[in-house]
Amino acid sequence: MSKITAEDLTPIAFTLAVFVVWELACIVFRIDSFILPAPTAVFSAMGQYWWPLLRNSFVTLWTTVVGFILAVVFGIALGLVVGWSRAIYRGLYPVMIGFNSIPKVAVVPILIMWFGIGEIPAILTAFLISFFPIVVNVATGLATTEPELEDVLRALGASKLDIMRKVGIPRTGPYLFGALKVAITLAFVGAVVSETIGANAGLGHLMVQAGSNFQMPLVFAGLMALAIEGILMYAVFAFLEKRMVSWAFRSSSSAAG
């Protein structure tokens, strides 16, 4: 456990390698820092503007999280309803596919017209974009309950609600957490997209501002902040997933013969 293996070090090694190659490319090909700033320039911009970066990161973070929480609450509720009944599933499916295939960027201007420039369009974009995978995964988890297991329980006189509570809902756990990992990154994308179109705070807003002031190192510093925030949020849910539905991970690896 405590021994660090070569495999644990590869992510760090690769990240460093990317920066080194990037830096070398900037030097060797004499790339203007206005086109592509070297990592050193980006990091120094990060140091110089740490406070605006941090403050705007927090704005992006909270709009993402609020949108995501809304998506989780409504996504689970709708997923349960859809998974409950085949009729609802069939009725709702085309609507949801249609809704999901609308690029959410196209909705942002509408949201801004409705709610004005600010955090609300960002929250709603985050919500809209991350909602769908949660619904689909929860519904799939419910719909794929083994028919034989259902027979066992029905023969005991179990109601549909019993089967749902004892089998269906616990079973959706791994599907749900898989979806949450995807949804949190999507919510993040949604929030930033909305901020770049119209907002007065947030990392997206900061990058647009920096771009129009020709501060390329700061734009890239913004990108870096986005990447770090995205990795952190993903890591939180990957960790939760391991903790909450560990049985789904171990079942395949350690089944005795």
């Binding site: 034989e148 029905r154 023969a155 756990g173 049985w247």
Partner: peptide
């Protein structure tokens, strides 16, 4: 309707992994 006095077992054990 379901007779409720029966226990059933199938080819697949179908135990709940959690």
């Amino acid at each position: 309707g379901p007779v409720k006095i029966a226990g059933m077992a199938f080819q697949a054990a179908n135990l709940l992994p959690w």
